[in-house]
């Protein structure tokens, strides 16, 4: 899941995939704001054809935390 998420984030926010690690902080390291995070949730929903709780995602700080959450939800 992390690898997939990394590609999505890289494409959506124009970030080089090498810069994205599990510890990368979405807000602090990439400057992703609440609107962009909401758009990411929509992108993930469409890709995985599921409904994602955006409030739950907004409480996650790092890419790894979001990946773990998605893995659990999609299991």
């Amino acid at each position: 899941m992390f690898e997939e998420l990394k590609d999505i984030i890289a494409a959506q926010y124009n970030i080089s995939p090498e810069e994205i690690t599990r510890e990368s902080d979405l807000r602090r390291d990439f400057g992703i704001n609440s609107i962009e995070l909401a758009e990411l949730v929509l992108e993930l929903e469409e890709r995985y054809d599921c409904e994602i709780d955006d409030k739950a995602i907004s409480k996650k700080s790092t890419v790894g935390e979001v990946a773990d959450y998605l893995e659990k939800e999609l299991a």
Binding site: I35, E39, L42, D54
Partner: peptide, 8 residues
């Protein structure tokens, strides 16, 4: 309906 749909 929700912030995530703002663009839509």
């Amino acid at each position: 309906p929700s912030l995530k749909y703002a663009s839509k």
